[in-house]
Simulated assay, not measured.
Amino acid sequence: MTLRWPWTRPTPSDSLAISLDGSTLVYAQVAAIAGGRRPLLRRCGTVPFDTARPQELAGRLRALGLPTQSVIALLQVPQCQLLQIDTPAVAPEELKAAARWRIKDLVDCHVDDLTIDVMHVGDGRTHGPKQAFVAAAPNRVIQGVASLCEAAGLQLATIDIRETAQRNLQCALAQAGTQGDRAGALLMRHGEHCLLTICAHGELFYTRRFAWEGALDTTAPAAPQSLSQPIPLLDAGEMPDIVDYGAELAIEDDSAETPRIVIEVQRSLDLWERSWPGLPLHGVTVDAGESTAALAAVLARQLGQPVATLDPRPAFDGVMPACRGDTALARTVLPLLGALLRDGHRNR
């Protein structure tokens, strides 16, 4: 099984996206998109299973009547690195091989043990550095997902990653609102990690991962640090946010009283302004689960940027009804909705 990234949707039919969180399968079923209408989330939920007997999962999924063909599997944040490199000056057909060579000193295992794919940074139209994102997942992770899907009776079409799923959702919401092609930042919690993406023109320009634990602590780190990654979904009153590193702080309050994640986000925004001066940010959206309101409030005070909370309803119909009003489930399913928005025309 290879990491097919991005995915091209096959025939018009209900689509299924799943993610595996330990011994729990999370799923989202979306109705076929027709006539330019917004996607409809039909069903979502979680299915516990015995990892030692994955074949038993097949019966549970059949009982639910879920579609089993052209399934998208979304990796957890720690299961795939997303590296950024200068684009190798090679022919398109040689790009992946050249990228594999470039990342050999950036990964903690042998490159032959990794499945990789490459995507250009940005849309190729905007002035800026010519760089590429390289998604690198251990072969054992890819094989494990493929084997479990086979045992569960699911026909695996694509394995996607959190950054591109978050991009898809972010860009769909931008198009559905007033932002359009302008640059915007989304900060989402994915379990134990936080993920910042900055997108414009329907493409991903910048991403950074943070560890969520201690992110709201008011003890500033001695030097810029990477955190980790998380994933949530919100209802009426929550949105995602941004982060970056390597810049001088523009925070008025004493850093010892400023939450660590705010400092890191400010560094990211400062770096963005220096790197992409022609793409000013429209604002920051935040989704951090039950901490969303607190995080959005402190970011709004400190960043000098419009800050909003993530609401997926402009891009998807039926989110809360399909989740039976369960906000926690909706947050868990949100990244799957992003994976289901892949349309096959994004740049590689």
Rank of each mutant, 00 (worst) to 15 (best):
Q166Y: 05
V121Y: 07
G191V: 01
R9E: 07
K130F: 15
A339S: 11
Q69C: 03
T327H: 13
Q131C: 06
G318Y: 08
I242W: 12
R348M: 06
Q179H: 15
L279S: 01
V319K: 10
Y27E: 07
L195A: 12
L233M: 12
T258D: 01
T68L: 04
S268W: 03
W212K: 05
G325D: 04
L204W: 05
V26W: 10
R189W: 04
R189V: 12
R182T: 05
C199S: 13
A297Y: 02
P129D: 03
A17C: 04
G59A: 03
M320E: 11
A63N: 02
V286A: 05
W101N: 09
T8W: 07
T8A: 11
E238Y: 14
D217S: 09
G214S: 02
R167T: 09
A211D: 11
R209Y: 04
A185D: 00
G318N: 10
A236C: 14
E248H: 11
D50S: 08
D113L: 06
D108T: 14
A152T: 00
R62W: 01
L340M: 08
G338L: 00
T332D: 08
G338D: 01
T68F: 06
P88L: 02
A151Q: 11
G36R: 00
A135P: 12
L336V: 08
A200H: 06
L303C: 10
D270N: 15
G65D: 05
E290L: 14
R267W: 09
L16T: 02
P221R: 02
G289I: 01
R260I: 11
R274I: 00
G128A: 12
L61H: 05
S268A: 14
H190R: 09
G153D: 05
I116G: 03
Q81A: 15
V262M: 02
P224V: 05
L334G: 10
T178G: 15
I261T: 04
Q55C: 02
A28N: 07
H193K: 09
T164P: 09
Q229M: 12
A247N: 03
L299N: 07
W7C: 08
A308W: 15
Q305M: 10
M320Q: 11
D160I: 10
Q131W: 04
Y27A: 05
A63L: 05
L173F: 00
E163K: 07
L227V: 15
R182F: 03
R125L: 10
W7Y: 12
A17V: 03
D181K: 13
I103P: 00
G177C: 02
G237S: 13
L303K: 02
R140P: 00
R167N: 08
V145N: 07
G325Y: 04
R4Q: 11
H345D: 14
I85L: 05
Q155M: 07
D123G: 14
H190S: 12
E203R: 14
S291Q: 13
Q305K: 04
V262I: 10
L269C: 08
L41N: 08
G338N: 03
I18G: 04
D113Y: 00
T158E: 15
K96F: 03
R348C: 04
E257V: 10
Q305G: 01
I161Q: 06
C80V: 08
V333M: 10
L281P: 06
W101C: 03
Q179A: 15
R140V: 06
A151M: 08
A294W: 05
L83Q: 12
P321T: 03
